[in-house]
């Protein structure tokens, strides 16, 4: 099957993305699909799994020399948890883009962007949008 994504190999060093769930939220269907989409597009994906803290995510991103962090949120806690993640990244002087995906109402997208989230991906975002927005965010960083 050709969905137009599998052939995209990175010219330079591949983008490294840390993907994870923050807090108690266990809905991991979306993030596992995104992990494979990014990997098929030629990126290196480090999936940390469930029940991470802001500190454990920052530590992993530093250790893995990540180009971006992707957080998946499905429990309506994004307005609390995304800013907490940004704060932890700022405190560690980790200047890489934060990408947030999941059940995010349209009205919250602007607030998250204003807070410093680089990309917000809502339900049903097509694979091209996922891949291209991560590439663009990393390029702009």
């Amino acid at each position: 099957m050709d969905d137009g994504l599998s052939s995209g190999t990175e010219a330079a060093a591949p983008i490294r993305v840390v993907l994870t769930k923050l807090g108690l939220d266990g809905h991991d269907r979306g993030i596992k699909v995104v992990a494979r989409i990014l990997r098929d597009a030629g990126m290196e994906v480090v999936y940390l799994g469930l029940r991470q803290t802001t500190d454990s995510i920052v530590a992993a991103a530093v250790q893995e020399d990540a180009d971006a962090i992707g957080l998946s949120m499905h429990n309506a806690g994004h307005m609390t948890l995304a800013p907490a993640m940004l704060k932890a990244m700022a405190e560690a002087e980790l200047e890489i883009p934060l990408v947030v995906g999941g059940i995010i109402p349209e009205d919250d997208v602007q607030s998250l962007s204003d807070a410093g989230v680089a990309v917000v991906l809502g339900p049903g975002a097509p694979s091209e949008e996922v891949v291209n927005s991560v590439r663009a965010a990393v390029a702009a960083a």
């Binding site: 807090g23 108690l24 939220d25 803290t53 429990n75 309506a76 806690g77 609390t80 948890l81 907490a84």
Partner: peptide, 16 residues
Amino acid sequence: GRDSDSPWALGEVGRA
């Protein structure tokens, strides 16, 4: 199995 005052509960108390 976490109480509302757990650091894990941040942002999730009474939400879902």
